[in-house]
Design a protein around this nucleic acid. Structure first.
Lengths: 345, 345
DNA sequence: GGCTGGCACTCTTGCCATGCGAGTGCCAAA
DNA sequence: TTTGGCACTCGCATGGCAAGAGTGCCAGCC
């Protein structure tokens, strides 16, 4: 079937004002209000006819027989795709983002700050997926003798990531021995990809003393675990409390499901993963996300890039009835700033 | 006035069953129920007389004229102080805690796991304050040349804490130079308290080249910041969603205040701070905590120790109507296990 | 003096009927 | 194609009513 057979400009204009009005007020919009608001000099009766058409097309619906119209997910979809006029972010906010994000030196801190700022400015919940590293390059490895048979292993990966763990060794290594192993590993493997190091180590096992093997093996295991669990594919959610207080979240049971999704993070990550592929800003409206718990919610997401490569996704989550025109540019801007701050230069 | 003038054993026993019953059911307990439940072979009328006395003493109250009795904060207080018989933690749960906490090597992970386990087992929200370090001893410092004028500073403090930050230097240092400074600092200051290092460095400034000053100065600044901001006096809260779904949290506005307190953390920390002093398990009931947002909530906290010294506090927060008899031993056990796992040996 | 049964009273809760307001659907006329 | 009119449908707030649960108090009993 053709998508929108009978929809004309007037109907679109009315849909636009309806959605805008509903986003503002949160209550079903009646024909009388719409007639006043639209500035089109039409009588309520005419509006009603148009509304009936829009309802047939599945763009609006009424909660009950006599209660005005509310946009459906499809209605929002059409709205954001074709009718939306975005509000530019005001200078002040841009500066605030730039300052507060530049203020934190540590990459983890930048991520946290970005999520908090997003949530604060939009009054929704902020989401930032941790940057993924295509290439995990070992910069430096260091062993530190803590106590008998306890060794602290420090791995520096890429530019700024430091991973560390305490391991228990088979026998007690002297600081000198540890230094020796570290020197060897650094000379041999620094600058190489973490993935390729494992096999490299095994190859070179023949040349080292037996009990050094164990230590190196442990180091490799650590590196392995780092590759898999380094918060890669994790995300930071901030400002969940903002979502309480929206009328559509008045039901505690719904709230609970939502917050459980936040704690579990899996569903959220899955959605973010989807949008890492898609170049550019994406909006998931209501059921579109495919998750029960996010029923009444929309997500606005966009990937952020470093040197042209997409390395993560950020955005916000909030009630379907959110001020898309203000939210979208904020998300967009955050991605740009975050990307530029995470680039190595 | 003398505290409990006319209170006798029978009244206490009735208060006990009343509180137990109310904790179980969550609804005001009437005289008929209490007569049945108490096993004391008394008529409802007698119970009513006793209840009137308890109400005069401020231990119970009725939500309205005809609705049974509910314990007041003072009632709970008396209950937990004098009437409570705790249920020992079952073997299985103890083992679970021991295993899952031993499973995570990194101290931060242990803390997180402890909080999660607490929340999961008690079905309340878990709180764990990060361990404080009386003595912050510099174990090791390391500089890593990242790019022109960017240096990664890695500080190892005490046994397992690794702190790192990227700093921008005045001029470009060669890796050899960085090594030299690190060697110097390690030789001179490793093993000393962070606090005392600042002055030590200033003293020794005369002996080093001018532009090394700047680098060392930056390192000291970093150390300084570590002292102040190393998540010290922070805490981990897990399982907040558990609290939704309790009838007393049905009001979204209350929930919101509570979760905002969780995000802010300040009030929570203040309460935890109070109980770090008090040797042993503490219970804050309802208004006792002094915070509006925690109105209907109780906290069960206990300090955890390493080598006899209290280094932090953990516990749970939940509705006043919580199963103290099951919760208390769990909190207690967690503190013991966590303490033993964090000790350096 | 303490315990008990009885009785009147209070308060909540659920239910039903009612009325009002807002808004729609449809029709006939302009 | 637009418009005014009219009947109709809901939701929501209100008030009255009955049932149920529980209390307070009193008089009698041990």
């Amino acid at each position: 079937m053709t998508n929108l057979p009978s929809i004309n400009d007037r109907a679109l204009a009315l849909l636009k004002t309806l959605v805008e009005r509903y986003i503002q007020e949160g209550q079903p919009v009646g024909s009388r209000t719409l007639a006043r608001e639209s500035g089109m000099n039409l009588s309520p009766a005419t509006i009603r006819n148009v509304m009936a058409d829009l309802e047939n097309l599945g763009l609006v619906t009424s909660p009950h027989t006599s209660a005005g119209r509310v946009p459906t997910a499809q209605g929002y979809r059409l709205f954001v795709d074709r009718l939306l006029t975005v509000q530019p972010v005001d200078e002040q906010t841009v500066n605030r983002f730039r300052e507060e994000l530049t203020g934190s030196r540590n990459p983890d801190e930048v991520i946290d700050a970005a999520s908090s700022l997003l949530s604060e400015v939009t009054r929704l919940a902020g989401l930032v997926m941790l940057p993924r590293h295509e290439k995990m390059i070992l910069r430096h490895i260091e062993f530190l003798h803590l106590s008998e048979r306890k060794v602290l292993v420090i791995l520096v990966i890429n530019d700024q990531e430091v991973q560390n763990r305490v391991i228990t060794t088979q026998r007690d290594f002297t600081p000198a021995e540890l230094q020796q192993v570290a020197n060897y590993l650094n000379a041999e493997f620094a600058g190489r990809e973490l993935e390729s190091i494992r096999s490299g180590i095994i190859d070179s096992m023949q040349q080292t003393r037996d009990d050094m093997h164990a230590l190196m093996q442990t180091a490799v295991d650590l590196a392995d675990r780092v590759v898999r669990t380094s918060r890669e594919g994790d995300c930071v959610i901030a400002g969940g409390t903002n979502l309480m207080g929206y009328a559509e979240m008045a039901d505690v049971e719904k709230l609970r499901q939502l917050f459980e999704a936040f704690e579990r993070k899996l569903d959220i990550l899955h959605i973010l993963d989807q949008s890492i592929e898609a170049e550019g800003l994406q909006i998931f409206i209501g059921e579109e996300s495919g998750y029960e718990a996010l029923g009444e919610c929309s997500l606005v997401t966009t990937p952020y890039k470093v040197e042209g490569d997409v390395i993560g996704v950020l955005g916000v989550i909030g009630p379907t009835r959110m001020a898309y025109d203000r939210v979208i540019p904020v998300v967009d801007m955050t991605a740009k700033i975050l990307g530029s701050l995470l680039s190595p230069a």
